[in-house]
Write a protein that binds this DNA or RNA. Structure first.
Lengths: 122, 122
DNA sequence: GCAATAACCGAAAAAAGATTCGGTATGCAG
DNA sequence: CTGCATACCGAATCTTTTTTCGGTTATTGC
């Protein structure tokens, strides 16, 4: 985890929420955990575009911020089994997540079009 | 505007939505425009923590992605008057924005607490 | 013992994103 | 003409975030 050099206005609700949802993969990780993909290695396979390291780091951040909880099922099991599950705070984010996903699926084509326009100019 | 070197999965709704909402100040800018703070210089004063340059750049991105529209009221007015307003696409983001803001205001204290814990360790 | 899997972590490097600074151009008020 | 306000833009710089890589520890199956 790191600390920002530049201070931000923490009285704005949007900025605060973005502390939790802002990371590149945090939304996806929360989504995965919600869908039952709860173990770090599973999440990494579920989101292959993200490096394993960033998943570890963002899990740590989500844990630190209280959005997820860590539950080591069997301390002495075969491959060490760590599971993360949503905390109450994390669950309260689900409606936002659902809305974000829904919006993206509904309006994504327009966005994709614009992005591909950009890439043509290379 | 820039182009990512690394390709991303554009079939995930969350990632697509984050293309629009992901920037550090994009949510705040959309919020400002929605609240009637429509001119670049006004927005810059409204969000003094952000540099003027990044506001210009993110306005350009929001414009490019179709979330806002540019309307130069008087081409030959005293200080050049440019106004941005939400497009239909931008307006469709408002419920998400409202929810994000609401969540932050409601649960922000817990987050702020954690963040200040971090800062104490300096 | 040795390979495999899982969970992590540290640190360097790369990439992305934001800031600073200086510049252009316009129009007006004095 | 000068000073000021607006809207922009380019480029260097700096910060933040992500990736890459190489570790550690622990347990199981062979």
């Amino acid at each position: 985890m790191y600390t920002k050099k530049i201070t931000e206005d923490l009285d704005c609700g949007i900025i605060l929420t973005m502390k939790i949802l802002g990371g590149k993969w945090k939304c996806c990780i929360l989504d995965a955990v919600n869908k039952g993909v709860t173990r770090p290695s599973e999440i990494a396979r579920y989101i292959p575009e993200a490096s394993q390291r960033v998943i570890e780091m963002q899990l740590a951040e989500l844990l630190f911020l209280g959005a997820i909880e860590k539950c080591v099922e069997d301390e002495h099991a075969y491959p060490k089994r760590t599971e993360y599950r949503l905390s109450a705070l994390g669950e309260s984010l689900l409606p936002i997540l659902a809305q974000i996903d829904e919006w993206g699926l509904k309006h994504g084509d327009a966005i994709k079009e614009r992005i591909s326009e950009l890439e043509e100019q290379l």
